[in-house]
Nucleic acid binder design. Structure first.
Lengths: 118, 118
DNA sequence: GCCACATATGATCATCTGTTCATATATCAT
DNA sequence: ATGATATATGAACAGATGATCATATGTGGC
């Protein structure tokens, strides 16, 4: 919060490095949005839900069975995934079929898995 | 935790869907690792640190100045990024120069930014 | 040895997160 | 309308998280 850009007390500054990085730096808002997106992906339950949906669309109780958690827990997590526009759904009677919103999740998971399994 | 695969009480199962997804499903351990990775990326301070390091290597106090948080806070966050093998460092005297560990961060950020800014 | 500097670590604490349980909403069948 | 099913929502509570402050470690210079 305290942006002391006059660098009171800080001594080991490498000026050109700092300036160069400052220029390319992303804004507070974008950094926040990015962090929110990754935070949404940063939970085992949500990872499993998304991975399950990578195979095919599923209803809530199918997801609950596949990943082994309560339907209520799944529903709560589906909401945060929906909020982040990571998934979408279509209604068929009283059943809601959930699916991935776009291809970004696949890309992110692919990159993530590469890093994790190397 | 309670894997009731005999589906006591659960009625809206679509058997073939569940079986098909089960086959392709990732293991508990991999899901956990993936979630941990994304969780490490899921904080504004760490996002800013990583983004800063995308431009060039930096020492701790430069990072602190660039992103506007205390050096202690930076140091704490650098540890979680190190633990996830997202960054590495080299020593030069009493200064530690931090940099990205590999190219996965760039890929993840690129995908993430695409999703966020669409 | 001593001191200053650069960074790391540990404790504390307020805030956030995810599950559970209870309850509400919406849809279909009778 | 009534009841059953599929899902959503709200409250509550334990556990995790991130900044701060104080302290410790490691390095170089004297």
């Amino acid at each position: 919060m305290a942006m002391e850009l006059d660098r009171c007390g800080i001594t080991c500054i490498h000026e050109e490095a700092v300036e160069e990085v400052q220029k390319a730096m992303l804004g507070e808002d974008v950094a926040g949005s990015l962090a929110e997106l990754f935070k949404a992906l940063g939970d085992p339950t949500r990872v499993k839900i998304l991975f399950a949906l990578m195979t095919r669309e599923l209803c809530v109780c199918d997801i609950a069975l596949v990943i082994g958690v309560s339907e209520s827990a799944v529903s709560h997590q589906l909401r945060v995934l929906r909020t982040m526009r990571l998934i979408k759904f279509r209604r068929e009677g009283r059943i809601l079929w959930y699916s991935l919103a776009d291809s970004h999740v696949r890309g992110l998971f692919a990159q993530g898995l590469e890093h994790v399994t190397e």
